[in-house]
Computed example of a mutant assay.
Amino acid sequence: MIITISNTKISATINSIGAELIRLEKDNKNYIWTVDETYWNKTSPILFPIVGRLKNDSYSINNTTFELPRHGFARNYDFQIVNQTENSVLFQLESNSETLKNYPFDFQLQLEYVLEGNSLKTKYSIVNKSNTTMPFSIGAHPAFAIDNNFKDYSLRFNKEDKFISFELENEQFNNSFKEISTVNNTISLDYSLFEKDALVFKHLNSNELTLLENEQEVLSVQFDGFPYLGIWTKPNAPFLCIEPWCGLADNVNHNGELSVKEGINLLEKDATFNRTMIIRL
């Protein structure tokens, strides 16, 4: 089901499959990229219960091995619409017989989209309904449209940082890293930055970044409480993904045990985990 919410400033369109944002419009301009499967077939998938790829696409819990695809399964499920108003919609996914085969925990996952002025708030909520501690990751993956020359765009961070990107090899961290050059906390975009997959930053001081075109602000993304940030595109693709994460792909040396995976979150029985990402146009 396709749902559109709006206020006097902006509108957002979401697909109930994956509760995936597919359009975000202001003044008849869509800021989310339009799918071209030549490059990629998603617009803003939710990453749950893992972020990135597992070593051998598998993990273990108490000596039992399970398999999960890259970024988990939530993005492929049809979410229930719990509540909808003119400017908000609440989606929900609960564990079921299929999810339990690959992820043996009972959970409730909610995504709520709320429009406030020129901003879209995306609220993530996870409830552990199991009788044991639940290890999980969650992340956002919105792809923003790049309408013109990629080199005309840049990313400005809101705080002083040393931009160390941890490198991926076959979608796993290989213990190598590089420092990304900046001027006044701003990264000038070039496709060459992404020759080895995404830029991945850990524990930045910044909690907001702004996408600029020819030094003019296009949009900003605020990500309080997300300790990791991925920036990604494909060669010559007309999009840029800005991805706040609470979780990471596996390291090449990881032993497979999910509960000790780098970046994993451990949620106690009946506890709730909340995060909010804000996109401002």
Score class of each variant (00 low, 15 high):
108 Q>E: 15
14 I>D: 13
9 K>W: 06
274 N>R: 10
37 E>I: 07
276 T>K: 06
26 K>T: 03
124 Y>C: 12
60 S>G: 05
157 F>Q: 12
180 I>R: 00
243 E>C: 12
20 E>D: 10
239 F>R: 03
272 T>F: 03
165 S>D: 09
60 S>E: 15
205 N>C: 05
183 V>D: 12
34 T>Q: 14
164 I>Y: 09
50 I>G: 02
82 V>E: 14
144 F>C: 08
143 A>Q: 14
133 T>P: 00
56 N>F: 02
256 G>R: 03
267 L>R: 09
107 F>V: 05
165 S>L: 06
3 I>V: 14
280 R>C: 00
119 S>A: 12
158 N>W: 06
246 C>T: 08
85 T>N: 15
30 N>G: 09
18 G>M: 11
48 F>D: 08
107 F>W: 06
96 N>P: 00
252 V>N: 03
197 D>E: 12
59 Y>C: 02
201 F>I: 03
157 F>A: 07
82 V>W: 05
226 F>V: 07
110 Q>V: 11
258 L>Q: 02
220 S>D: 09
240 L>E: 00
232 W>T: 11
3 I>E: 04
205 N>I: 04
50 I>K: 00
271 A>W: 09
25 E>V: 10
60 S>I: 10
269 K>I: 14
94 E>W: 02
145 A>V: 06
147 D>E: 13
160 E>W: 00
267 L>Y: 10
145 A>Q: 12
148 N>E: 14
80 Q>L: 04
23 R>S: 15
95 S>M: 13
75 R>C: 00
143 A>Y: 15
127 V>S: 07
44 S>R: 03
166 F>H: 15
23 R>Q: 15
10 I>S: 08
194 F>G: 06
28 N>E: 13
145 A>D: 13
39 Y>L: 01
242 I>G: 06
255 N>M: 05
24 L>P: 05
10 I>F: 03
164 I>C: 06
76 N>R: 04
261 K>F: 03
111 L>K: 08
165 S>M: 06
190 D>I: 01
203 H>S: 09
68 L>S: 12
98 E>F: 14
11 S>K: 15
176 S>D: 15
75 R>Q: 04
48 F>S: 08
33 W>K: 01
2 I>W: 01
235 P>Y: 10
6 S>I: 06
232 W>C: 10
161 D>T: 04
189 L>A: 09
75 R>W: 10
107 F>Q: 02
238 P>S: 00
111 L>H: 04
193 L>N: 07
260 V>P: 05
109 L>M: 05
273 F>G: 03
100 L>S: 08
19 A>R: 14
51 V>S: 03
83 N>W: 07
19 A>V: 08
137 S>H: 06
196 K>C: 04
140 A>M: 11
42 K>I: 04
110 Q>R: 13
156 R>Y: 11
60 S>N: 08
125 S>G: 08
83 N>T: 05
150 F>A: 09
16 S>E: 09
115 L>N: 14
107 F>H: 05
264 I>F: 10
53 R>W: 03
142 P>Q: 10
162 K>H: 14
170 N>C: 05
141 H>Y: 11
76 N>M: 05
183 V>K: 13
222 Q>C: 01
136 F>T: 04
215 E>M: 06
48 F>M: 07
274 N>K: 12
116 E>H: 01
140 A>V: 11
183 V>C: 13
248 L>M: 12
100 L>W: 09
